[in-house]
Design a protein around this nucleic acid. Structure first.
Lengths: 249, 249
DNA sequence: GCAAAAGTGTTTTCTTTACACCCATGC
DNA sequence: GCATGGGTGTAAAGAAAACACTTTTGC
């Protein structure tokens, strides 16, 4: 083997698909609060892909790990200070970036309910939350403004820069897999939550409706009752607040 | 954002934890064939970590993806031509390699039964298969010659170079997770196999014994009968050979 | 009272677990 | 015959699904 310095080196970036649940208080007291799964995008102000959307991200520095780089960029570009990071794959097609040889370590980042994180704390003008919904062969982003088409596991979208359509698709699949197999759903919720807070995002992400009584039983081992209640003045019985069960898995 | 060329660039390597099932025909006809989960290691002939063990791997080239780099290095260093690659995380601690700033995209690679791949086809003198067994707080490699100690998800071993002890530990956990949740066990088997070929590795990897009758039922939906039988002259009823079910999941 | 969602109970179905038993083979 | 692992049957226990019903709230 030759000396490692003989080899050309790529630039290494971290790109982040940030997921959050947006809870908008219902205007009409007869309705449930509307909950949406959202991701963070950036509108690109410069070339390449000027005017298109991209994921927050940036380059790895010699003094940090790639996870630290991801969190640093997330903070710089969106104001978010803490998040659960889930590593996705590394995107390394030689032609994925027209600027040159740049590979990207992609992450999914999960933050507890969005409202507590945006506006007040955000120092980023350019990043914004958009809704994301998974269909059978497409992903609908920002209520139809951005549509990712899926064909044979490949994702296409001409409004998203680089291979970010593919990264978003892969991130969504990973999120779903983690929700089904590893209780990661709790990382999208605040410390205290109602059963509905848990059930609605769960159904959106997995794409499957659950009967209320059955869902309650299924997750009962993973949560603990508190003696608090939540009722946004809605016209129905108040919901008990739960927290994540303290026993380890 | 500045021009990307302003940033210093790391060397990027791919390191591979190659898993395979080694089936040694039993000497005594009264015994079952012994099956072991094994991984591929390399004895380092040069500094750093001269004399210690490391994973096969090498540097990413500008014309290939990191997956292609992993498969190329696997072929060059071990003679293995095809494998199922599972991406692990990227290891990027700034001080992980004493030679300089080198980050590593790690992969698990799964190959069908070892014997068909080694000796005859291998053009690598330096790589070799060693057994791997997971205990509660340690990993036993090569029948006790290499012991990885686990403490709080951190892996330590002074016989393994770089952070490769940690990579092997993470790879094992990932393999286990994939076997439990995603039927990846079939990628460790040849096209035709007996129920025992399936059950023994499954139990070794998951660390849980399954009652034979129940295991058979559990996996019955995922396999198809053939009209072939396998009996290495053993003193018991011959085993029917099965293949993976052709229906997609 | 009424609508809406929270929450409980019951029955049915399916899957998982445990265990008893028969089958085919080489010696 | 006998030991060994391959393979089947069956019953109990547990989890998932379906559905009917009660509770608490704001108007």
């Amino acid at each position: 083997m030759n000396n490692y310095k003989d080899y050309e080196r790529p630039s290494v970036a971290a790109d982040i698909v940030t997921f959050g649940i947006d809870s908008e208080r219902a205007v009409n007291k007869r309705e449930l609060d509307s909950k949406m799964l959202k991701i963070l995008l950036i509108k690109r102000g410069e070339e390449p892909f000027k005017g298109q959307y991209s994921l927050p991200g940036g380059f790895l520095r010699p003094t940090e790990t790639i996870e630290e780089a991801a969190l640093r960029e997330l903070k710089e570009e969106t104001g978010i200070k803490t998040a659960t990071l889930i590593p996705l794959k590394t995107y390394s097609a030689p032609d994925r970036d027209p600027r040159g040889w740049i590979i990207s370590c992609a992450f999914a980042a999960l933050i507890p309910t969005i409202e507590t994180y945006t506006d007040a704390e955000s120092d980023a003008e350019s990043s914004f939350w958009v809704s994301i919904e998974m269909g059978t062969d497409e992903i609908n982003i920002a209520n139809g403004e951005i549509i990712i088409t899926i064909e044979n596991e490949k994702a296409y979208c001409d409004k998203l820069a680089f291979d970010h359509a593919q990264i978003i698709y892969d991130a969504y699949l990973k999120l779903k897999d983690e929700v089904v197999n590893h209780d990661i759903i709790f990382d999208l919720l605040p410390e205290y939550f109602t059963i509905a807070d848990l059930k609605i995002p769960y159904e959106m992400i997995t794409g499957k409706k659950e009967a209320a009584a059955n869902f309650r039983r299924k997750i009962s081992k993973k949560i603990e009752e508190t003696d608090m209640f939540d009722n946004g003045g809605a016209m129905h019985r108040p919901s008990k607040l739960y927290k994540r069960s303290s026993e380890q898995e």
